[in-house]
């Protein structure tokens, strides 16, 4: 009996084998291979030689890396709160079941299904100097148009606007799902308790969806640190590298300059940053909810 039970437990593992093998080949193996590459001076053509932490030292000494790091951090600090706040706002506004709200939900989510190429094309039409939408509008009002895509400061901002527009669907849907889990009688109790709409939001709605806010924040931190396509296609990192994010730096070092070891070392830094940011968020939020238990 015990023997057959033990054997059946082992055979249960077969069910996850297909997924596990793909997971190991495509995720676990590249993770360690990346770490191994980051310790070697290697290009795309042949075996490298071991250089210890040399690649890491070269990355940290590279002003272009530090600029890209700064760009990515600024981008995340601005785009993630925008996505969370805007997504929450849209979800709160559309948390009703009417034809109009259903249509608007679909509309706001529709941008998420577009590819990055289409998204950047659309936003280039808006931002491009001369014939772009914003340039035309500025001229209508007699204002000197800003060259959004090639002015330092504005270029990263423009990439951010396109990104928020592209990515807003998922946060909105996650928040909507969370809002619909809140029992309606809590709102009825709050109405009998004389709570103002602001008090209801602060004391009933937001605490009820705190976990989802955290989830959306972590997902967005992870996603926005990986910014690449929009910057590549809208500004190509310019002007002067002021809109070049970390992934674009890694791409350029690895696939343009063929310095794969250094690119791998930069990737490890990015991996670490995302890991720390996500863990910090998690720890802070779980400590807060424990304290209020």
């Amino acid at each position: 009996m015990a023997e057959s039970y033990r054997r059946s437990q082992w055979s249960n593992g077969l069910f996850i084998l297909p997924y596990l093998s793909v997971f190991i080949v495509l995720l676990v193996f590249p993770l360690f291979w990346g770490a191994w590459l980051s310790l070697h001076k290697v290009d795309l053509f042949g075996p490298g030689r071991f250089v210890g932490l040399g690649n890491y030292a070269r990355v940290l000494a590279d002003p272009v890396f530090l600029q890209a790091l700064r760009n990515s951090i600024v981008f995340v600090l601005v785009s993630v709160p925008s996505l969370v706040v805007l997504g929450l706002f849209l979800a709160l506004a559309l948390n009703k079941t009417t034809r109009t709200t259903s249509f608007l939900r679909g509309l706001f989510f529709s941008s998420s299904v577009l590819s990055v190429t289409i998204v950047t094309l659309i936003w280039r039409f808006v931002f491009i100097p001369g014939d772009g939408l914003l340039a035309v509008i500025s001229e209508q009002f007699g204002v000197q148009p800003v060259n959004f895509l090639s002015t330092s400061g504005w270029s990263l901002f423009s990439v951010g606007v396109a990104t928020v527009w592209w990515c807003i669907g998922l946060p909105m849907m996650l928040f909507l799902a969370a809002l619909q889990q809140i029992p309606n009688d809590l709102y009825e109790a709050a109405a009998l308790d004389n709570a103002s709409p602001w008090r209801v939001l602060k004391r009933v709605t937001l605490p009820s969806i705190a976990r989802t806010i955290m989830l959306v924040t972590i997902i967005q931190i992870v996603m926005q640190f990986q910014l690449f396509g929009q910057a590549q296609l809208m500004t190509n990192g310019g002007p002067n590298g002021t809109s070049r994010p970390l992934v674009m730096y890694i791409y350029e070092v690895g696939f343009v300059r063929w310095d794969v070891g250094k690119a791998a070392a930069a990737s490890e830094f990015l991996f670490l940053i995302i890991l720390v940011a996500a863990m910090a968020q998690y720890v802070v939020s779980s400590r807060k909810s424990e304290a209020s238990e």
Binding site: P183, D185, L186, E188, A189, A190, L192, R203, V204, P207, S208, A210, S292
Partner: peptide, 14 residues
Amino acid sequence: VAMVFQSYALYPHM
């Protein structure tokens, strides 16, 4: 008036 709900409707985070 004050109401006691069937599900009690207590605020779970308070």
